[in-house]
Amino acid sequence: MERASASLWRKIRSRYNLVGNECQNCNTPYFPQRVVCRKCGRNSKMVEKQFSGNGEIYSFTTVRVPPDTFKDEAPYFIGVIRLEEGPMVEGHVIDNGIAPKIGTKVRMQFRKMYVDGQEGLIYYSFKFEPL
């Protein structure tokens, strides 16, 4: 086992459900969450916001030389997704037979991200499925 369970636990809501936040002062959404709004500074009014998981591919790449964590996944796609609510999110793009392209519509799916050896935790997270 390599990883501490606390770090997984802290990120569960953002990882499972794309829970970020939004400044109620200027309506700017953020993912991941920010403590202070970039635009409003000390006037920030940050509230939690769950994003729909729908968006489109802003950019992507194919990873052929992966870190050990994903050695059995390679080659795989990593994309920068522009969510329909605005924020850009980096995430795995699922290989569902639809070749990802810039502008391809995607939706969030719930997947395994990483399995910590034979005895450690299973890390679940969002990934994006091309439509």
């Binding site: 059995d72 996944e73 699922i94 799916q109 719930f110 997947r111 395994k112 679940y124």
Partner: peptide
């Protein structure tokens, strides 16, 4: 199942 799918991910979907 996909390599990143199990009974939990299927249940969630």
């Amino acid at each position: 199942p996909g390599r990143d799918e199990d009974a939990a991910t299927i249940a969630v979907e």
